[in-house]
Computed example of a mutant assay.
Amino acid sequence: MTSEIITAASAGTWDLGDLTVNRVGFGAMRLTGSAAFDLGTPSNREQSISVLRRATELGVNHIDTAAFYFSSIRSANELINRALAPYSEDLVITTKVGPARDPSGAWITPARPDELRGQVEENLRQLGRDHLDVVNLRLMGQESVSEHFGALAELREAGLVRHLGISGIKARHLAEAQAIAPVVCVQNRFGLDSRTTDADDILRICGEQGIAFVPFFAIAGEGREKGVHSAAAAPATDDVLLAVARAHGATVAQVRLAWTLHQGPHVLAIPGTGNPDHLVENVAAGALRLSADEVALLDSHHTGG
């Protein structure tokens, strides 16, 4: 790819309700260390702040975060507040509620419906906001979302939340949530190496209904969601991926992101990093245009789990 500085606008835009965002955004989980769930290796605070500021300079106006993204001495929300407040009018910050961790970092029982207000208020305090732009309900194995999503819909009516999304879902959960309140985005695991029939169905349904589909771990390995940080957690690289990357003068990670964005105009990318060079590369991936043959080739050599 060209060495010129490419901005997040290169991938186009999508609307989250009445909020317009560039399709290449930023995931804040990695800002606190090697992962948000690793309490042993805190990140460099000033570098994390610098990465956030550089992201907005590159046109990123969609940042994904959560109050449970923290390490021993770092909080993603606090870093965002320190780096970017007072916030620009076009910056959209998306948060997640549902999961919960105690101060030691251990996962505890997910929030009950009546506890979601406290989680929303925690995000408000940490970010220094009077309302949250988008809040995703992150499912933690629930068969039904009606009580939890209904509680968030009440907070939306109260003005604490502007728009609602849902994460880690099956298609039936989306229909159930939509019967309660509008859904502007779905966050599910999805990537070149992690496609399933369910994931493809939700991708299609979101496109048909004008809902943003926001994959997480699009360039990460199978172990990433569980906090595994070893060679086994890294995504596979094969000759096909390498050939496509070389043809474009790009990295394999950029090809993975470009493939994700090629899945539809409603697909948003939220790659996360604490490395300023990787940030520039991730944003530049939005300008990488794969041919139909290249997309088909990649599809034929990668099947979901």
Rank of each mutant, 00 (worst) to 15 (best):
H148D: 01
V21Q: 01
I5W: 09
H62L: 14
V97R: 02
P103M: 12
L152Q: 03
L31E: 05
M140Q: 13
F149D: 03
I180P: 00
H302C: 12
V183A: 05
D198M: 07
S144W: 06
K226C: 13
D18V: 02
Q263L: 04
A245W: 07
N77Y: 08
R256A: 12
D238H: 12
D239M: 01
V51H: 10
G305K: 07
P42H: 05
L279N: 08
N282W: 00
F149S: 03
N123K: 12
V214D: 01
G159D: 02
S72Y: 09
Q119D: 12
N22Y: 01
E176Y: 07
K170G: 10
E115L: 07
A284C: 14
P215W: 00
Q119V: 00
S50I: 12
S10F: 09
L288W: 11
S104W: 11
T109P: 01
D238V: 14
I166V: 10
V228M: 04
S3D: 05
S75D: 13
E4F: 11
R45G: 10
R125M: 13
S34L: 08
K96A: 03
V255P: 04
T56C: 15
E4Y: 09
E4V: 13
I93R: 14
A67Q: 12
A231P: 01
L58G: 00
H262L: 13
H248I: 15
M29Y: 12
E78F: 13
L268R: 01
E147V: 00
A250L: 14
T303F: 10
P276C: 10
A175L: 07
Y69D: 02
V255Y: 03
E115G: 08
A250S: 13
R74Y: 09
A232R: 09
V255E: 07
F37A: 08
S10H: 12
H278V: 03
R53Y: 13
E222F: 06
N275A: 06
T197R: 15
E157G: 04
G98S: 00
